[in-house]
């Protein structure tokens, strides 16, 4: 029982970080109907950037987030502008898979040349601190990471629901054609949306680097997890991404703690299949025309 509750605590705290990564992923899909296979690589790049800022300048990873998000936002806009914009609308969904995968490989290559393939981790002074609460341990880093992710998701929510840009994004998500007719520049919204997705990857990356060791190849594990989360939650739904992340993290932490880590991933996929059998569009998903 003790192990079970400790597992739930761990799972929920970890879920915040994955929710942040997945919200960017699902946003990009919502706006552009593009499954961004480079999201994992962007998270790891964000982790490396904040690792570099920490080791070179002693900048705390949490404080590094404003810097890394700006850099990654620019990178995201550039990727959209250079590689995705030229695609014709008809085959954008299919071709974008190849292109974003190529971008992931490109980022991976650059990272292994720059930082080599040794595993890195960001070790701050508070990396091992924890609070005891009724005999359960709450890791400080995970708690901060969780709170930060909540804050970032809150900002994202405000941005999408209370700004002109957010309205344009939501309009594009709901109906790109009508949005265009109303004078929304789809290209600009797409570029900014992709940038925003990359920026959430950067913020999540800083936190990821605090929690786990990573190297340039770590994005493969991440992307499979991220895709599962967004599909479970429903492609295009930020709320779904959050719920998906909670289900993924909690189920794997609980199974790892009570049964075996070897079964933890498996359990999650069983849940995923079960939910998709009942709701093929995911928990909060709507059936999207022209989607994959």
């Amino acid at each position: 029982m003790h192990a079970l509750i400790q597992g739930v605590i761990l799972g929920v705290l970890t879920a915040g970080v994955f929710a942040l990564m997945a919200s960017g992923q699902t946003l990009i899909f919502g706006i552009m109907k593009v499954v961004n296979l480079a999201q994992g690589a962007m998270v790891i790049l964000g982790a490396y950037l904040s690792y570099q800022l920490f080791t070179s300048f002693g900048l705390d990873p949490f404080l590094a987030i404003p810097v890394t998000t700006v850099i990654m936002f620019a990178l995201g806009v550039a990727v959209q502008w250079l590689f995705l914009r030229p695609l014709k609308k008809d085959d954008r969904s299919e071709l974008s898979l190849l292109i974003t995968f190529a971008v992931a490989l490109l980022i991976e290559g650059v990272m292994s040349i720059t930082w080599h393939t040794t595993y890195r981790s960001i070790n701050t002074g508070y990396a091992n601190s924890s609070w005891s609460l009724f005999g359960y341990q709450i890791t400080l880093v995970r708690l901060w990471a969780f709170l930060l992710s909540l804050a970032a998701l809150g900002l994202l929510y405000l941005l999408l629901n209370h700004t002109r840009f957010g309205r344009a994004v939501r309009a594009t998500v709901q109906n790109p054609e009508s949005a265009k007719l109303l004078g929304i520049e789809a290209d600009r919204v797409s570029a900014l949306g992709f940038g925003l997705g990359a920026a959430t990857a950067a913020a999540a990356g800083s936190v990821y680097g605090l929690l786990y060791p990573f190297n340039s190849g770590s994005h493969y594990d991440l992307i499979s997890k991220l895709l599962s989360i967004v599909i479970l939650g429903g492609l295009g739904s930020v709320g779904g991404a959050v719920l998906g992340a909670v289900i993924v993290s909690t189920s794997s932490a609980v199974v790892a703690a009570t049964i075996s880590p070897a079964w933890s991933e498996m359990t999650f996929f069983v849940i995923l299949i079960a939910i998709l059998l009942v709701r093929p569009q995911g928990i909060f998903g709507t059936t999207v025309r022209g989607a994959l």
Binding site: H2, A3, Q6, G7, L10, T14, Q137, T139, L211, Y212, P213, D221, A253, V254, A256, A257, T258, P261, S264, E265
Partner: peptide, 11 residues
Amino acid sequence: ETADLSPVMSG
């Protein structure tokens, strides 16, 4: 591929 060993260690 187990990135997170906290569950095992809490056991």
